[in-house]
Nucleic acid binder design. Structure first.
Lengths: 219, 219
DNA sequence: ACACAACCTGACCAAGCGGTCAATAAAATT
DNA sequence: AATTTTATTGACCGCTTGGTCAGGTTGTGT
């Protein structure tokens, strides 16, 4: 480990360091504001205040409101794609779908704002990420439905329509983020506890895995 | 049937007639615009254009943007509550929950804009219908969970957590409205056909009813 | 026919918006 | 130390927004 690396790039890359710090601060603030107010309701001023920067500085890092918004949406999309890994390297539907549910529920818990921004974007007709839907998401979906079809052919689960099964998984898991406020209200105004989240996961997995007649890897 | 009633109140209630026509035109346009652009992104001008009225006329019927929005949200809420009737007068979970899924899927198909407005409202923290969540919706939910618990006690379905089951029903059915654009994109850019909708309903019902181990009314 | 109330609307306004820019400060390079 | 590059910011601008209002029009009761 060289000295410059150990002291974390004092002279040269301090610029980059500051730049990245400001960018992430802005992105975090933006995610929250976009989630709470929607794209139209969000203001650059509010994002700037929340990030602790003057408004003009935002436009130095992100030229327009739309550019900033686009980055926020892309970040979320990548997090979601990463959750798909659980799906792939699984011997059977119980492990694969079970792990996928766990992963997506965890995302709903840790990144509720991101989920809301995504939902809002799609609800409004996906004005900025339509191409993602048509390319990356479509490819991803086709791969997964093929996977599910294989499980069905192997008799490891009931012959349910893979597409609608995927929709169900998305809907159910993301609901805990997008409608978190409603759930919290019905929970007596208190956020879900660790135990509540565990119960949510267990219930969702139980119903869906039994619903598709899934069997474990042991044949 | 009197003459005045037959000719549908020509002299007296023509005012009311016009009033109601304009109000519903405004409300329909507002629902669409709020759904497509969100509360912050929607403009009174656009709503007025879509309703075929000058903007100032909107403010004659609805004093403020928020008042108009509130009415839109309330209308949707009432439609949803009415879908609950299917739940009540049912002998067992297969009929009750099955009919409820059918009803909510039909709402997602017929009133996608309303569903989106509701989703948006809740996602943004329910700023205008928080009281509804705390009163009407909470009462409704408690009644339904009690119903489900009874079914469980009677051995008509597996002992799943009723609250999370309800969330699953809401999430899955509303997903077809709120994320309709995404579904349409993954469907090759075409809206779901009659057969697609039927398949969606059947798949959702099959997975959930099997998932909760529901049995029909015949014991 | 008259008077009164309800309805309609073009023109207007203050406020807030996204975005710009010139001037300044800080850091890196020479 | 000088100079160039990068980062920062208060002040500002054109434009759109929700909302107002005076004056005109239409419908209703007498």
């Amino acid at each position: 480990m060289t000295e410059t690396a150990r002291i974390s790039r004092i002279p040269k890359a301090r610029r980059q360091q500051i730049r990245q710090a400001n960018e992430t601060a802005i992105l975090q603030a933006a995610e929250k504001v976009f989630a709470e107010a929607g794209y139209g309701g969000a203001t650059m001023q509010l994002i700037a205040d929340m990030a602790g920067l003057p408004k003009a500085n935002l436009h130095y890092y992100f030229p327009t409101k739309e550019a900033l918004y686009r980055r926020v949406v892309q970040n979320i999309f990548e997090i979601w794609l990463r959750a798909a890994d659980s799906f792939d390297q699984a011997p059977g539907p119980v492990e694969g779908i079970g792990a996928y549910i766990d992963a997506k529920m965890e995302i709903s818990r840790r990144h509720p704002d991101g989920s809301k921004v995504w939902a809002s974007e799609v609800m409004h007709g996906a004005p900025v990420i339509q191409d993602y839907l048509e390319t990356t998401l479509r490819d991803w979906t086709e791969g997964r439905t093929a996977h599910i079809r294989r499980w069905i052919d192997e008799g490891r689960m009931a012959p349910v329509d893979p597409q609608h099964l995927l929709y169900m998984l998305w809907a159910t898991t993301q609901h805990y983020a997008d409608f978190g406020h409603q759930i919290e209200t019905l929970n007596g105004g208190r956020p879900l506890s660790d135990r509540d989240w565990q119960k949510a996961k267990d219930t969702v997995k139980a119903i869906i895995l039994r619903g598709i007649g899934a069997t474990g890897s042991d044949t």
